[in-house]
Design a protein around this nucleic acid. Structure first.
Lengths: 211, 211
DNA sequence: AACGGTATTGGACTTTGGGCCAACACCCGC
DNA sequence: GCGGGTGTTGGCCCAAAGTCCAATACCGTT
């Protein structure tokens, strides 16, 4: 386990509002805070990107149309930088192509003003749920990768070949060494990866390869 | 392998057009045929649902707004009946909520009239690619399920426990039988499932459970 | 030059997994 | 009732995997 996981801030889950219209931001903030959510607001895409909020647990409420970088561009930039915060768009106009692109790019919802309060709240709750799940999965994936990274190059080779179902003797032949050697590596692999059965090892290898 | 797989018709890939406007259908058909696609058209959602086209390789081009069952309802009905044909919506008006619902329900694209011909063709090519892939995966999944279904109840139990990484003796203890018995079942499982290593068996079990 | 991490191999021994042959009990349909 | 599928168990033997202890060799660092 590496010391820094780039995922601190167990801080309360926060809704990040990105909208250039100050009155909208005020209204949304009041509504969300009244419903028990932490809110942090940004007047532009750039402002959010330069914040450290990218790796928190929370969700984004983005106005589609903004001066400078618009909502879709912000979404693309976030994806580019591996930010996995769920995104909910808010739009005043009815731009279907933008809607299609937004949802296909992974946006969770796309609300058009005016919208029902409850609709927004439901979307946010759903987004926070998803973010929690994603975070859990991401942490598990990182733990997997850490364990695999702790293997020596040779052990990694052996690990993958064991995972593909080869016998020790086949692995030995393939790597040009003795079966005995493979047994040693294999034992170390099982120990370092903290798995007690081949089945667990196979699943771990698959998870690693599934990206 | 069961004799009938419910997936015949290796017929040429077909674009199914569902639109109540005869002139639109004519125009689309001409365009698509001119670009080398097979086209079959339906004047209503009900007409398509009662056809046998549900299990073909192809894709659907659905008009969002139709008298009777509309596009979204048709999409829902198809999903209900496990039809996996990729869906592309065509809409004259700009109904954002419908767009959101359509895309979230798995629609591949949502084109608004008027659209670029090339945009439509690209969407269709993408849809057909996806349908081919899905079909391949579905056939593979069916083959897996067939093999698993050929196991006796006891063999299924043993199979799952082996897949979870237990030793023969642990399985025997858990099932209240002798280790020798498990060995026999296990051998039959490996044979019936046509796997040669525990790794393959684990992956097969996971695929079955992944639904 | 000494040291630690890595890769390698050997031997001896135990545990597990598999293959082959045979056998018995149960239940169901013909 | 008999035949066949299913579940069960035994013995014998071999292959594969895992364990413990020990040893050599290379490489880069201190």
């Amino acid at each position: 386990m590496t010391p820094k996981m780039a995922l601190e801030k167990p801080a309360p889950e926060t809704v990040f509002v990105v909208d250039d219209d100050a009155s909208v931001v005020r209204g949304l903030s009041r509504l969300l805070r009244a419903n028990g959510f932490e809110v942090e607001s940004f007047a532009s895409a750039a402002a959010f990107l330069s914040s450290d909020a990218r790796d928190c647990v929370g969700c984004l409420l983005i106005d589609l149309r903004m001066p400078g970088m618009n909502g879709l561009e912000l979404q693309a930039a976030l994806r580019e930088s591996n930010c996995t915060l769920p995104v909910i768009f808010i739009s005043g106009n009815t731009d279907v192509p933008a809607t299609v692109q937004a949802i296909r790019s992974g946006a969770l919802d796309f609300l058009t003003k005016p919208f029902q309060e409850e609709q927004l709240l439901a979307a946010i709750r759903s987004a926070l749920d998803r973010c929690r799940d994603a975070r859990t999965r991401r942490l598990a994936a990182l733990a997997d990768q850490d364990r695999f990274a702790s293997l020596t190059p040779r052990e990694k080779e052996v690990c993958l070949l064991v995972g593909s179902g080869l016998l020790n003797k086949q692995i030995a032949w393939q790597l040009g060494t003795a079966e005995k050697t493979i047994k040693v590596h294999r034992a170390r692999v099982m120990e370092k990866l903290a798995v007690v059965s081949v089945a667990e090892l196979v699943r771990l290898v698959d998870r690693l390869g599934a990206r």
